[in-house]
């Protein structure tokens, strides 16, 4: 058997750095033995050899080839153990899978990005991809919501993103404030305003927990976005990554190969998309 052709095999990767983002979210920078080329929005499977694997979308710039960042919340069996991994440890990585963000459809438009919680991870890769060619986009707008100020990821970086270009705007809100927080308080839907975007020449990109995705989508429709201009990350139980294992099916699609990003028009009539 030619191991290179084994789609279930992973490349070993060294953990170069671990950053604590919040109490339960860490960003791992890894260096695969063989560089993996990807497009923002595509995902990969990270393996703890002999233990298990789980799918994640890299959060790093796809122009950086040698290393990959993954921002991971401790949520299940594999991620709990991943959180114990240290600098210098070895993990496995295979991919990339899925289609990634259709940047060609975003060019010359206002890119209206809405993130919730750890959902900012794939959007960070998207933002870097946009910054690589910032003059191609009319505006780059980020609206980010976290549960509390302590749950904001990429705290150090977010402020620097606004300095990437004149037409970059960022706004953050938290569901609940605290004494350290002077910013907006309220759900992310409260900072999605008609005045802040030209919906007739814009695309919206949303990633976050299912309940947030649902209400953000309804809000975006409410302020005038078309179904086909709303790009949603439908991160289902993607296991094999190659459209064979059956777990991530949504109607006629497999999230792993036909997504994981879908425009709302494609999935709005399918059952239980928000669960």
């Amino acid at each position: 058997m030619n191991e290179m052709k084994n789609p279930y095999a992973y490349t070993e990767a060294e953990i170069l750095n671990v950053v604590d983002e919040t109490a339960n979210i860490k960003t791992f920078t890894i260096r695969p033995k063989e560089a993996i080329v990807f497009r923002a929005g595509q995902f990969m499977d990270l393996t703890l050899p002999g233990i298990g694997e789980a799918p994640f979308t890299p959060s790093s710039n796809h122009n950086v080839k040698a290393t990959l960042d993954f921002t991971i919340m401790s949520a299940g069996r594999v991620t709990k153990l991943l959180h114990q991994a240290k600098k210098g440890d070895t993990v496995g990585v295979r991919g990339p899978y899925g289609l990634g963000y259709p940047l060609d459809k975003f060019r010359s438009k206002e890119v209206f990005i809405v993130g919730g919680g750890v959902g900012l991870a794939p959007l960070r890769a998207l933002l870097y991809a946009l910054f690589n060619e910032a003059d191609q986009y009319k505006k780059i707008i980020l609206k980010y919501g976290a549960r509390t100020p302590k749950d904001i990821v990429y705290k150090v970086e977010i402020d620097s993103w606004r300095a990437k270009a004149k037409h970059v705007e960022t706004e953050i809100t938290t569901d609940i404030g605290d004494e350290s927080w002077n910013g907006n308080v309220g759900l992310v839907t409260t900072i999605l305003k008609k005045e802040s975007v030209d919906v007739n020449n814009a695309v919206a990109i949303v990633c976050g927990p299912p309940i947030m995705m649902k209400f953000v989508t309804f809000k975006l429709l409410d302020i005038g976005f078309k179904d086909s201009d709303i790009h949603l990350s439908m991160e289902k139980n993607m296991s094999c990554g190659i459209g064979k294992c059956g777990h991530c099916r949504i109607g006629p699609y497999y999230a792993c190969k036909d997504g994981p990003v879908f425009t709302y028009d494609k999935i709005k009539d399918l059952p239980n998309i928000w669960d």
Binding site: A75, G76, R77, K236, N237, H247, D275
Partner: peptide, 13 residues
Amino acid sequence: TFAKVAGGANPRK
């Protein structure tokens, strides 16, 4: 658990 994800969401509860 077939379609359940780690965060707890399950499209076929």
